[in-house]
Amino acid sequence: GGRLIDFVQFYVISLMSGCLDPKTESAFLDHVIDHESGIYYTYDSKLKLLPPVFESKQASHYLAAIELLSAFPQAKYKLRFVLDWLDKNKNANGRWDMGGSVSDKVYFPLSDYWRKREMREADCTERISNLIAAISN
């Protein structure tokens, strides 16, 4: 007995969207974003700290955590720093390419074929554009 489970985990967060009043949701998101060990099952570092390498599996997992939080109405205010980071990581074509290492068969690839850089870039751009739209609305 006496075992406590941290509520900053994928399942709890995915169920909380739309259930909290704005003030409580704001405090909840602040807590999650500043939580030392990230979101259990999704990302294992503090969300306030951006991944050091954009073209990495770590950054893809970071995006998964941000996608989870983007379902909260208060996210558009709390996650602006993520939008700035994404904007800084566009390539010369105004698109995103996270590199081949992000292929984890969960979030990537979206396409059947990633041997061409253009397909990988299209998939990354699709995912990130959807995230930006979710946060910006």
Rank of each mutant, 00 (worst) to 15 (best):
K48S: 15
T42I: 15
R3D: 09
P109W: 06
L49T: 14
N137K: 14
N93C: 07
S70V: 06
G94D: 10
K46T: 15
L86V: 08
T42N: 08
E126K: 13
W114S: 08
E118V: 14
G99M: 08
S17T: 06
K105V: 08
S129L: 01
R127S: 09
R115F: 12
F7C: 00
W114P: 03
L4F: 07
I13P: 05
I128S: 05
D30E: 12
L50H: 10
K78I: 00
G100T: 13
A65R: 05
F54A: 10
D44W: 11
E36Y: 11
L20K: 08
A92Y: 13
I33D: 00
M98D: 03
D44G: 10
D123V: 04
P22E: 12
D44P: 02
E126P: 02
S37Y: 14
L15A: 09
I66R: 00
Y113D: 15
S60V: 00
L86W: 08
Y40I: 07
G38R: 04
K105Q: 14
N137V: 04
P22Q: 05
I33S: 02
F54Q: 05
V82S: 03
A65W: 06
D84R: 15
K78G: 07
K46F: 01
W114T: 11
Y113I: 05
Q74P: 00
S26E: 11
T24I: 14
V12D: 02
N91E: 10
K23M: 08
C19W: 02
T42R: 11
S56E: 08
V12Q: 06
I33L: 15
R117T: 14
V32N: 00
L86Y: 11
I33H: 04
A92F: 12
I33M: 09
C19D: 07
M16D: 01
Q9L: 06
Y43Q: 05
K105D: 14
Y43P: 03
K105N: 14
N89K: 06
E55H: 06
E55R: 13
L83Q: 07
T125C: 03
S17C: 07
L79W: 02
K105P: 01
L131G: 01
Y107R: 14
V32L: 02
S103R: 09
I128E: 01
Y40T: 12
N93M: 12
L50K: 12
D30S: 11
A133L: 10
S14V: 02
A122Q: 12
E126A: 11
A75Q: 03
A133R: 15
L47K: 00
I5M: 10
A65F: 02
S111M: 03
Y62Q: 05
K23T: 09
K78S: 11
V32I: 15
W85M: 05
R80F: 05
T125P: 02
L47G: 02
P109T: 03
R3F: 08
V102K: 04
S37V: 10
